[in-house]
Design a protein around this nucleic acid. Sequence first.
DNA 1: TTCCCGATGTGATTCAAATCACAAGACCAT
DNA 2: ATGGTCTTGTGATTTGAATCACATCGGGAA
Lengths: 240, 240
Amino acid sequence: MISPYGMEIVESCLTCKFRADRVFCDLPQSALQTFEEIKYTTAYPEGAVLFVEHQAPRGIFLICRGSVKLSVSAPNGKTMIVKIAEAGEVLGLSATVSGRSYEVTAETIDPCQINFVKREDFLRFLKNDVNVCFKVAEHLSEKYHNVCNEIRCLGLSHSAAEKLAKLLLEWSSKSGESNKAEPRVKLRLTHEEIAQMIGTSRETVTRLLADLKKHQILNSRGSTLVIRNQAALREMANNN
Amino acid sequence: MISPYGMEIVESCLTCKFRADRVFCDLPQSALQTFEEIKYTTAYPEGAVLFVEHQAPRGIFLICRGSVKLSVSAPNGKTMIVKIAEAGEVLGLSATVSGRSYEVTAETIDPCQINFVKREDFLRFLKNDVNVCFKVAEHLSEKYHNVCNEIRCLGLSHSAAEKLAKLLLEWSSKSGESNKAEPRVKLRLTHEEIAQMIGTSRETVTRLLADLKKHQILNSRGSTLVIRNQAALREMANNN
DNA sequence: TTCCCGATGTGATTCAAATCACAAGACCAT
DNA sequence: ATGGTCTTGTGATTTGAATCACATCGGGAA
């Protein structure tokens, strides 16, 4: 089956190829069966808004395919990108569990396939099975852990260069390239968006990247960055 | 019973006066009974370190009395205070559940009474009772929610004045004073520590507070601040 | 192709806040 | 009371990065 946005649909969680290595898809058969029954699968085009911060939680969104940009914004219009979520990740989980409003805005940045589960259904699902509930608690803990690191980054790294270096290293390790001699990072965001991720201005990002290229630490191949001197990047990320 | 550090000991969670209004103490009788059996109650003096970031999780710490400073620090020695936890709060929960290392360092800032539960005991406790497990998931969600707000604060508010204003308002609302005409906030931290909470320098905090006093927005009575113009503070916190 | 608009690159200028460098209080212990 | 140590107050200086202001590039639509 092919969706209107030109990608293959994953029919069932039971046979999804991400099952093995994704946090939330990794449930016992029986639970997964129940999950199948309460989920709604939808395909979204690029730029679709799944939910908006401060909305009351409608339920959870499980990304099967594609990536989603999570952002927060201030009354004055400034926005900050919190993270780019990939296939296998669950969005809106904490809001759905606690009943508090969504804390971020979620917008697809490419065509996505997403499973949605209504809040009531999901809560019933949790309360029916300790294993599922524990899994969710575990997952929430990991998310908490990650956000704490985020804070550490934002609060402790005072220079923009440091934050950019950290971001690039994170991206290269996520794509499993960091153990190569010259890891490559595909840039999926504009300089403006990168700036919003590290809390700086667009011009600063442009200048920093130019500097890194000048010093032969980076090199660009179209929209792909080649990290030519990982050690130097690490240096920048840790010190200062 | 009186502890070595001069405070009354809360003998049992079943009779603790915080039970009604605290998140985690609010468990059904049966669960609380089990909790009683696996917990170790300890009294700590001011300045005791409960756990250090990056340590493997030994278990959870439930504050019965006193306050605990949670901080993260960078390799270069800079540290940032994440929050001041009060009676009723649980520390080390996410690390204990997920098995990842503690994400912060916890240090008492006054004499404390704390219940400790070993990781294995706690996990068993969780897995034995869906209600407890769900409660924990709920709690983790709230914590996640709060950290997200933290990020929003750090990342979107660029001026130090704004962050300080936000912090003062938060403190006044926590102490339930914010609905009064002139809320009072007891300063429990030094300027240095306040600076670490909002990611700025000690001198900046001193100067900002002096400014606020000059403009009659604040007023100090010893170590207590009186917020004389809450509207102005709110103004500072939201805009800019 | 040509036009157009969004993304980049780069200088010049401005500004908030870090840093440095002391002075003056505040508080504790002897 | 006296000395010592930690906290607070304040000036002077420096600086990283925001902001402003354009020039240029590049890719999609007509």
